[in-house]
Design a protein around this nucleic acid. Structure first.
Lengths: 334, 334
DNA sequence: CTGAAAGCGCTTACAG
DNA sequence: CTGAAAGCGCTTACAG
């Protein structure tokens, strides 16, 4: 079967392609009612659907943006994407989501692929491993917004959680309940991923503010597969930690697994606060106290910023880093 | 900044556009080594990246497929998509994922949008609400694969769980443990969504096989927001159900919420088996017994089938319905 | 009010 | 071994 093109419609309606095109783009300013009607009928009879690929080629715009997340397994990523999608839908933009799987090589391929596909802009949760590429895009003024991670020395918008404040909330809450032996477990720090760095630095600072001495053996950051061992070290020592912050949802799952295998009672033996408000937080026994990121607002901001940059190439941002405040969801695990 | 095109490269290398195009497509059959080298250098110096939109227009193929899921909130959907993505990646295809949100209107818009974008084929987890549109695509021989749901009277591939067998596994396992007051709770049945229908019919059949009388008050299917009430009816009656099947992961979450608010002990007061092996099944207390769908195999089959149809327009399927066997993951909730 | 023509950036059959 | 030309399906500035 042959696809119907604008020429077919033009012939069928006995007008020119230009006129059909005007019709399709709702430029009715000068169109005679009967012309309009003839075109309407031709379109209906033939079942014409315009070819967006051809239009994009001519218009040099695809009304599509790319979203590349470092790791789609984080609930933060999926929730933020939902918000981006909502905003884009409202404005007639489509999104293509790619998962770099924490792999800079994959990230590079996706960036190149999406640009070859002529997406109008990119929202990237950067792996941090393609500095020169990021820099080139910034220099070219390619519409770009970063989420969740700051890339040192790059002057482009970054949508960030106020990580320091998030950690402070957790530490303060523990301190209020009388805990002093507070630990933090988060996933690996290679490539200096911003939130992990900020969360650990913020942790030291928050302890200091409360006059609680920092104990290095309570600060751990490791690849997911080593977390069980790390927890063993932290929690089976002579003076084990009594309160623990999960640096993100993946760390939290490992902690819950450890707690389960070792029959640790929460919060009696170990108080727990997780960053990222996971879906099952209130279903768990005990219900999990978490620090929620305002994922919807963050995704919305990312999308709006990017769309502004796309629509106005000279769009000037008043600032580069947008910080969002987290919220402490007090439940039962502390 | 101006994007570099094939003409720029041709000029810079002092050859024709045709020759650059041959080079880009690795048709080196007759190319003189020095021509090759000149083009290579020009591309490097200019930082040329071909415009895939232009290529797609000419080739009438975008190497992209669309995936429209009825509801992305189901773990089944996300897991299946991952498999589809893997297979497509291997074969140089990209995917665009859309969520119809169980809304046929949205589904229709997405189908039209993706076809306008000239995707080479579609994998649809159908809402069931666009029969004529599905039919038109089948008639046009548009490359299409359905997942999870069969649309009555449509002759196209459908990738399905063996739902009857899944329910039988659950019922048999309950029966072995001596349960007779077995119930099932699943999400709404409007539009006769296949798995829900098959699961409920299979449920009646499985009970019959075991000689257990069917009690209508133990069979419930309702919109998520009414499930709490439905559970109340089923579990606070004079003779409450003692064992319960969650028809899918969303129903399971509602059941867990009910169990929590009402302090029901599992499995002592209520045994539980969920269809869909949710991520937190083994983290829960008690660990949840589930029926796992082979999501990877199902997604793989869907992708391979679609790619075959795309590559060979005359591809004939020997059958239309592909059934996959579930697996019982025995843990502690029964 | 409508149409002819040029052009978006590629690919490809064909000529030489 | 390489190039000129046509064409994919649109849009748009311009002429009439």
């Amino acid at each position: 079967m042959k696809r119907i093109t604008i020429s077919d419609v033009a012939q069928h309606a006995e007008v020119s392609k230009s006129t059909v095109s005007q019709y399709m783009n709702k430029r009715f300013d000068y169109m005679a009612p009967k012309t309009k009607e003839r075109i309407r009928m031709a379109i209906e009879e033939l079942g014409y659907q315009p070819n967006i690929v051809a239009r994009s080629l001519k218009q040099k715009s695809t009304s599509t943006i790319g979203v590349i997340v470092a790791n789609i397994l984080h609930t933060f990523s999926t929730q933020t994407i939902r918000a981006v999608e909502d905003i884009c839908n409202e404005q007639g933009f489509h999104i293509i989501v790619c998962n770099a799987d924490d792999n800079p090589e994959k990230e590079r391929e996706y960036i190149e692929m999406l640009r070859a596909k002529q997406v109008d802009g990119l929202i990237i949760f950067p792996t941090g491993g393609n500095i020169e590429l990021y820099q080139r895009m910034v220099k070219e003024k390619y519409p770009l917004v970063f989420v969740d991670r700051i890339v040192d020395g790059l002057e482009t918008s970054s949508i960030m959680l106020d990580n320091e404040s998030a950690i402070k909330m957790a530490v303060d809450h523990f301190a209020e309940k009388g805990y002093e032996r507070i630990g933090i477990m988060t996933t690996s720090l290679h490539r200096h991923v911003t939130p992990r760095v900020e969360r650990i630095n913020g942790f030291r600072k928050a302890l200091g503010d409360k006059g609680i001495p920092v104990r290095e053996e309570y600060i751990k950051s490791m690849e997911v597969e080593f977390i069980q061992d790390g927890l063993h070290d932290m929690l089976s020592a002579d003076e084990p930690a009594r309160a623990l912050i999960a640096g993100n949802d993946l760390a939290l799952i490992e902690i819950l697994r450890y707690i389960k295998t070792n029959h640790i009672r929460v919060p009696e033996e170990l108080a727990l606060i997780g960053i990222d408000d996971v879906s099952f937080a209130s279903l768990f026994t005990p219900e999990l106290t978490t620090i929620a990121q305002p994922t919807f607002e963050m995704g919305k901001q990312a999308a709006e910023l990017l769309l502004n940059k796309i629509k106005d190439p000279d769009f000037i941002e008043e600032k580069h880093i947008y910080r969002f405040q987290p919220e402490l969801m007090i439940r039962q695990s502390c």
